[in-house]
Nucleic acid binder design. Structure first.
Lengths: 217, 217
DNA sequence: CGATCGGTTGATATGAATCAACGTGCGTGG
DNA sequence: CCACGCACGTTGATTCATATCAACCGATCG
């Protein structure tokens, strides 16, 4: 990645940090790739995934503004996953060495990282549970609820209308179903008046019903 | 937990750390429980899991000697998961406050925690991929391979014979299948001469074949 | 000796995958 | 401006993988 960046020498003293904009659909990082930088999402959506040799792909999570690609990249120079832009996306890269020296001198950063680690671990555990134990309906409801929470934490939402840039293929790859089955389940939810998802907008009509289906307690 | 421990006042100055032995099958920690301690497995096997209200259970991972229950417990006093002893188990509990003060003064501890976090995250990502994308055979082969690696990292193994205390129910709960299907798949592996699993011993006859089935690349 | 637990096996049911066709909107190039 | 291709979603028919239900076995234990 770092190779492509505009070093922006005009901002003197800031060469440990850089920003860039990536178009929708572009792959940003690849498994096994080594990078000197720790990346943060500043705007737009991305996702982290594993690509299997036979074409199957598992989306591990979606990256929203404020997310690091992964807490692990603060310590590990090699990605163990790939990352793609879902929408056009702004990312900020910071030199790992710089992040680490700041970390050593500033306990607040450690606290922030720890918080992030806790949140990621819990989210991963819950998703693992959803994939291992849940039916198709439950998984999809769970994914939507989880993303709604994350969206709502970042922007005010009204009338249960969420900007929602995932295609059905992304939902499928995240919850381990085929796109056609995702389509069927979403149609079912629509028919039952629970929610509607189209044109990048998710509208929720029966939140309690949705929680009954997809909440992981 | 801490309530039950023998405070062992004979070891003066060591009241920030204590050890205990737990019998097989006993639950050690429960979701939402608060603890002052960070726990480490010293001997035996345990597992971390989510219990769903309807009885379903997802085993998140298995805990082997040297493992913390979770890196997150160093920072978070509340467990977001439950833990059970699989075999009889020895665990060591350390006061979180003490761990944190040591952490502040000793970068080696931070490095160790970071390593552990990286390993856990990668393992979780891989397991998530297995659950989302893999067939029954692939999942079981993957789980066994993963555990074999972890066992081999802790003790010399010879002749591809592993001490393996899981019941089929545990395998089922870890990979999201029913015990009867686990039985069928294991029988199939046995019939094909790939491996044999019984009496707490896993014997692997065709490692390459197993890796062909269950390796996550 | 009966009860319980863990595993095996067979018959059947079911949820999701697969295969295929079709519709719609959209961008692109003629 | 139109025609075409392509991405995305929908729907129907069928297949397939795994779950469910049930019976049974052997070992272990009180």
């Amino acid at each position: 990645m770092a190779k492509h960046l505009d070093e922006s020498p005009s901002l003197q003293g800031a060469n440990w940090q850089h920003h860039l904009t990536v178009p929708a659909g572009k792959q940003i990082a690849t498994r096994s790739q080594v990078s000197e930088d720790v990346f943060l999402i500043c705007g737009g959506w991305g996702f982290r995934f594993f690509q299997l040799p036979d074409g199957r792909r598992q989306i591990l999570n979606f990256l929203l503004p404020g997310d690091l690609f992964s807490v692990t990249s603060v310590f590990e120079e090699r990605f163990h996953f790939s990352v793609k832009a879902l929408t056009e996306i702004q990312i900020s890269g910071m030199r790992r060495a710089e992040v680490q020296t700041r970390l050593a001198g500033n306990p607040d950063i450690l606290t922030a990282l720890a918080k992030s680690c806790i949140a990621d671990t819990e989210a991963a555990d819950r998703m693992q549970t959803a994939l291992g134990q849940y039916s198709a309906e439950e998984r999809i409801a769970y994914l939507l609820l989880h993303l709604m929470q994350r969206i709502a934490a970042r922007s005010v939402i009204s009338e249960q209308r969420y900007r929602f840039p995932l295609r059905q293929q992304h939902i499928a790859d995240a919850v381990g179903l085929t796109p056609v089955h995702v389509s069927r389940v979403l149609s079912l939810f629509r028919d039952r008046g629970i929610l509607e998802l189209s044109d990048g907008i998710l509208k929720v009509f029966k939140l309690p019903e949705m929680e009954r289906i997809g909440s992981l307690n």
